[in-house]
């Protein structure tokens, strides 16, 4: 196994700012959309994106969180039971334009679960997806609308996003490689 840093703290910061710019550029004013982060990494990133939007636009979009544990499709697989987090969407969803935020896009199953849960909270007009890292290997027909960085990975590799909000002593993205990125849908696009 080898491990290396795919993004430094500076890379990460710059990427978040660029994502915020892209979102406002395409979706307009901070009042026109809401950010909903998937617990836990995505929730922190949603806050950072909101802060970045506030700095450039002078106005902060509303932010919610989704904990998708209860919507997962692998609760029965004998994995250790995940701890429950908080889903909090303290505003009306109906008719809103939602940007779902996650740290890593991989199989697409998390996003599937998040979409299901989101619909139980209300009926948004439109949902788009923003991710910090797209590492390939999709198992469902899901694609991100805003991508920070595309990383070529092997299916068994682990992509670890460290954020200070989670208690990490630094920001950054690390890849722990267990196999070469040789499958056809992996690799750099």
């Amino acid at each position: 196994m080898e491990a290396w840093r795919a993004m430094t703290a500076r890379d990460l910061d710059r990427t978040v700012r660029r994502l915020a710019d892209e979102i406002t550029e395409r979706l307009g004013d901070a009042d026109d959309f809401v950010l909903i982060g998937i617990v836990t990494g995505g929730a922190h990133l949603a806050q950072r994106l909101a802060d970045a939007v506030a700095r450039t636009e002078g106005h902060r979009p509303q932010v919610g969180t989704l904990d998708i544990t209860l919507y997962r499709d692998d609760l029965y697989t004998g994995l250790e039971k995940p701890t429950l987090g908080v889903s909090s969407i303290p505003f009306e969803l109906a008719g809103r334009h939602v940007v779902l935020v996650d740290d890593v896009l991989f199989t697409g199953r998390t996003v599937r679960a998040a979409l299901d849960e989101l619909m139980d909270f209300g009926r948004p007009a439109r949902v788009q997806l923003a991710v910090l890292v797209d590492r390939g290997h999709r198992e469902l027909p899901i694609a991100a609308d805003f991508v920070g960085r595309t990383l070529g990975t092997g299916k068994l590799d682990r992509v670890m996003v460290s954020l200070r909000e989670d208690g990490s002593d630094h920001d950054g993205v690390q890849i722990m490689r267990f196999e070469a990125p040789d499958s056809p849908d992996a690799g750099a696009h």
Binding site: D73, D74, T77, L79, V104, F106, T107, R109, A113
Partner: peptide
């Protein structure tokens, strides 16, 4: 539980 539900969420 059931075989086939062997995908991890990422």
């Amino acid at each position: 539980l059931p075989a086939g539900a062997d995908h991890a969420v990422a």
